[in-house]
Amino acid sequence: MSEKATETRDLIFEVLRPFADEKGVSLSEGTELAADLDLDSMKIMEVLLEIEDRLDISIPQNILPNLRTLADLERELDALKTH
């Protein structure tokens, strides 16, 4: 795992922690946005807006169908950052 990827993961965990706390689950690579954190598509889009601002990147809506787990999110964000 590169240093950059770890950075991305830290941010993802930070942004999602409030949702995890609310559901009483702990976050891991395999945590599912919908099934475990109860995030519907609208909420996921809100989370992405926040991540966009924190990382100063643009996240296209088109990645939404690819996002099931936190690992998916991390992979997509890293791909965007190296663009």
């Binding site: 807006l49 643009s58 996240i59 296209p60 809506q61």
Partner: peptide
């Protein structure tokens, strides 16, 4: 419409 266009789609607040 955005999704079906195949374009890259971004949202603003």
């Amino acid at each position: 419409g955005c999704r079906m266009s195949g374009a890259e789609v971004f949202r603003f607040r």
